[in-house]
Amino acid sequence: MRYLKLIQIFYKNCLLVDLEYRANFLINSVMSVFWASFAILGIKILFLQRDHIGDWSYYEVLLVIGLFQLFTGVMEGVLRPNVTQIVEQIRLGTMDFLLTKPVSSQFLASMRYVRVWHLVDVAVGVGICGYALYRLQVQVSVWQALLFLLLLCSATVLLYSLWLLMVTTAFWFVRIDNITHLFSAIFDAGRFPVTIYPGWVQGVLLFVIPVGFITTVPAAAALGRLSLGYAVLSFVMAAVMFVASYFFWRFAVRHYSSASS
């Protein structure tokens, strides 16, 4: 309850700040539409040559692109601003204030900021998904829709945990720009269904850096072609990563010796 209240206050704070920068809304909207169009154009060209990539048709791939755009929005809007702040706070030593509050420091550090205008990406992503599903004319059963939504939640948790695992290393390295750039580059692979990649790349994208669970698996669920095994694996993966990120954070805080004043 208290945590919900806090999120409400935090997000209101961020909205207040972001409302001061109206130009950002415009820029982000343009950028979001631009990148989405760019991605769509890319697969349009591919599909001029053939009508399937792997066993995915044009609109099926479009659904994956929509999900990719959605999670890009989540990443840029909800996760990255906190990462930037955590790095700053470790560098400046103001992390001390978070750690002396009677609330989970992980929560305070990772849920504090939101860049409201990046939620445009989420809206664009939802739009693309909606359009793709509409053109595919898939008959989505209640059970499928529910599974899809649950998989979206677990994908969000997974993405959050991956970012947290990454940013926690800042307690040792302080500057982690390179790591986040690397992750973004790998995350880009999630733009397409993982099944189009060679076998070993699929393995990496599912079990080493589990990007596949974020875009491909929910898309497959919506299309009714996901085996139950992968659905379960998706939840297990999210749970394991979340627990791992929780303990890694605690471990890091234990070893934190803040920048001396």
């Binding site: 208290r2 209240k5 806090l6 206050i9 935090f10 704070n13 207040l16 700040v17 001061e20 400046l92 030593g93 103001t94 001390d96 204030f97 002396t100 509050k101 009677p102 609330v103 305070l108 004043s261």
Partner: peptide, 27 residues
């Protein structure tokens, strides 16, 4: 409570009262 003269916990872009409200919720 911990106060450090060289570090600040107040939210830079917002009025101080917003930080107070955050702390009210935290505590």
């Amino acid at each position: 409570t911990l106060v450090m003269g060289q570090k600040q916990q107040l939210l830079w872009d917002l009025p101080a009262i917003e930080t107070f409200l955050v702390n009210q919720a935290i505590y």
